[in-house]
């Protein structure tokens, strides 16, 4: 009797362990923003390299970093951090240096995106997509949509519900630009001012959402305006003609997202193949056509639809570009942002 009971226990234990250990041998673990890669590109890669790609999603850069710090560094192979996050991740030894020899398609990268200030010599990263932060607004009949952050921050300009973006640097950056400050301000007085500004906007809003969620709320008509990334804005515009994506006149943020391989990536060789695959011109064009973000890939340009290349919402004009600013890593001062963000969220 005793024996059979024990056997039962052991059997149950083995059963539960065995069922877990049936993972494919070749696997790539990709940690990426939601709706940020064409599913078909992924399945083509799976076919070509006879492997399985496991995708986990995030909606904001800080949560991504938290997950990587909390154990993701040895679980995921490829991650897609935005520019300002790269120095911190490099300093925390979370990224593996890229072996350029295994990534021949690196040559496809547009000259202006090489050797960026956040990663000199492209030691850890290659650019994936770039874009801007702006407003996604459903236009009311007969009314012109003001091209200003005041849609969000000025109570008098409010016309219906709006959604804030659930990402500290993007949200605080928008408020700083509205006030005419730099996106990278570390002046406590300015930061306190925008903290109160965002906190009061929050009370009038429907809360915080990631870019994709915010876009969908405008699509669903449960909000009139939202802060989103350009790709979401353009995809929304294509689907619903009543909506527009606007880069506010006060200026905004321009960013570059990057492919990076994690320091303790379990499948480093496959990760390099993946990065190289993404940098292929045709593949890069397919991704950009899907995401509606801008491509930093020179070889992709000839495969991207001409109307996309001419679309100022995707590729802003030099005049608009002059008003855009990159985020920088603020080092120890990042704490100020984390603190006001916690306070904004808690208010």
């Amino acid at each position: 009797m005793n024996l059979s009971f024990r056997r039962l226990a052991i059997f149950a234990a083995i059963l539960s362990c065995a069922s877990i250990a049936t993972a494919a041998s070749q696997q790539l673990n990709l940690f990426i923003w939601s709706e940020y890669i064409e599913p078909q590109v992924v399945s083509d890669f799976e076919k070509k390299f006879d492997c399985k790609v496991v995708i986990d999603l995030y909606e904001d850069a800080e949560s991504m970093l938290a997950k990587i710090q909390g154990g993701g560094v040895s679980l995921y192979d490829v991650v897609v951090p935005p520019d300002h996050m790269v120095p911190a991740m490099a300093k925390l030894n979370l990224l593996a240096p890229l072996n350029r020899e295994h990534i021949p398609n690196f040559k496809n990268i547009e000259q202006t995106f090489l050797n960026p200030p956040y990663d000199s010599g492209n030691k850890f990263t290659v650019p994936y997509q770039w874009g801007t932060v702006g407003l996604f607004v459903r236009s009311a009949k007969g009314k012109t949509v003001p091209d200003s952050w005041s849609v969000i921050f000025d109570a008098k300009q409010q016309d219906g519900q709006f959604v804030l973006i659930d990402s500290v640097r993007d949200m605080v950056g928008a408020a700083l630009k509205y006030k005419g400050y730099s996106l990278n301000s570390v002046n406590p007085k300015e930061l306190k001012e925008v903290r109160d500004l965002i906190a009061s906007a929050k009370q009038r809003s429907t809360g915080f959402d990631g870019s994709v969620g915010a876009k969908n709320k405008v699509m669903a008509k449960s909000a009139r305006a939202a802060i989103v990334y350009s790709g979401e804005g353009v995809r929304g515009m294509t689907e619903d003609k009543e909506t527009v994506y606007i880069i506010p006149k006060e200026g905004s943020q321009i960013w570059v997202d990057n492919l990076a391989i994690l320091a303790q990536a379990p499948h480093k060789a496959l990760a390099e193949e993946f990065v190289n695959y993404i940098l292929d011109g045709k593949i890069g064009a397919r991704i950009s056509s899907f995401t509606q973000f801008a491509s930093p890939n020179r070889a992709a340009m000839e495969f991207i639809k001409p109307e996309d290349l001419k679309n100022p919402a995707i590729y802003p004009s030099p005049a608009v570009k002059a008003k855009l600013e990159f985020l920088q890593d603020l080092g120890p001062k990042t704490r100020l942002y984390d603190e006001i963000w916690t306070q904004i969220k808690a208010k």
Binding site: S34, L57, D209, V212, G213, K215
Partner: peptide, 8 residues
């Protein structure tokens, strides 16, 4: 949860 958060 993540789908609800994304509004799909």
């Amino acid at each position: 949860y993540s789908s609800v958060k994304r509004g799909v």
